[in-house]
Design a protein around this nucleic acid. Structure first.
Lengths: 216, 216
DNA sequence: GCCATCTGGCATGGTAGCGTACCAGATATG
DNA sequence: CATATCTGGTACGCTACCATGCCAGATGGC
């Protein structure tokens, strides 16, 4: 495969073969994201993705082998960008509580600046297919990131209660964001972040106390 | 329509026309539930549902007009049964904390006795279609039920913070149950319920304090 | 400018689902 | 028993998608 692909490769439009393929792949992921945001996972098809991207079907198979692959790419990209944005704030050497708030604010901002991001990442699942695990894995990354970096206390124990609180935080935050986007939580985004920060702190503190109390 | 349907109606197999139609409808919902649990929402089709149910396609259109309708029926039934089971425990006139624990335990038991229930209700969404709102509505019923009956404090205010906590509770509980089913939270179901009860109390108390503190 | 490569459009044969309609056997009513 | 109703099975024309292949025009290296 690799040798065959390398037979003919030259620049085109000022881009190398790899760059062009990467651009096309990105265009396909963008197209799939837009289609899912508008019509949901069901009804998504390879041909629809290619139409939306303005690309020949051949270029779909160049980057993906089946529809599940591009679905996985969409969720992976969204989760990755969300994590990157969040971690970017945590790197700042601010007071811990302030850093936590800024991280959550950045996370919420990323998801709600373009509401499609939250709706696609949290509001729809291609379950059952092979890609079902991909979203779970992506959310799992969010949980791990949140628990290992958000507050240091989470890193110290592998207690089931900690895992459970992490799940509560991520699942609860997802639902909260979706409800807020749908207008069921009537407040400003600032207030949304404030309330979420308060809940994260409360849950984190309570979980720490519970685990410590059990160990000692 | 109604008059036309009433032209010919007589008992068959010891059942009235309405009873037979209801049985067929239930069989179709069962079939859709089983298919979704095994293969996910994508790939679900009218013909597949009829095959699984052993019924003619005609009987699908007798009860539903499109695929979204049976999807909505599945989620509605699951949410309704979950709510019924939960409320059944709350009716008992036990001490309030004990009643809360029993209600949560019953809720978790319903979802995990047959893990497909949790996976179908929480782990997959037919988003984008008209049915997208049905799952949201079903979960919304859970939130409303939990907040209006679970702990009396929730009923007194229409504060956004209360709405947000409700979303956190339901979304977080959903994610926690899914994680537990997938073995990512390694504990007994008793411990799961204990931890969830603790989190519900913590979140509820903190929310109450926050709202009261803001009002006064 | 020649030619190999790249690109988009179109065509193919096969599969699957949709919505409707028809048919023959089973069942209940009078 | 005769007749009207109910039932499961099958067939239809239609559309969409899949996976692959071919072709002509565009582009860039030499």
């Amino acid at each position: 495969m690799a040798s065959a692909d390398q037979v003919g490769r030259r620049s085109y439009g000022g881009q190398t073969s790899d760059q062009r393929a990467a651009s096309r792949r990105a265009a396909l992921v963008d197209a799939a994201f837009a289609l899912v945001a508008e019509h949901g996972w069901r009804g998504l098809s390879i041909e629809a993705v290619c139409r939306q991207a303005g690309l020949n079907k051949r270029y779909f198979y160049e980057s993906f082998d089946r529809l599940d692959a591009v679905i996985a790419a969409v969720t992976t990209r969204l989760a990755g960008e969300a994590i990157a944005v969040t971690l970017g704030e945590l790197e700042e050497d601010a007071p811990r509580d302030e850093a936590t708030r800024r991280a959550i604010a950045a996370f919420i901002a990323y998801l709600t600046d373009d509401p499609r991001r939250a709706r696609v990442l949290f509001g729809a699942v291609p379950a059952g297919d092979a890609a079902a695990g991909h979203r779970a894995a992506a959310i799992r990354r969010l949980i791990t990131t949140a628990t290992s970096r958000g507050r240091s206390i989470y890193a110290l124990a592998e207690d089931p209660a900690v895992e459970l609180s992490a799940a509560m935080l991520v699942g609860g935050t997802s639902q909260a964001v979706l409800d807020w986007l749908d207008g069921r939580v009537d407040c400003t985004r600032e207030d949304l972040v404030d309330d979420l920060v308060a809940l994260w702190h409360v849950i984190g503190d309570a979980t720490m106390a519970r685990v410590v109390g059990r160990v000692t």
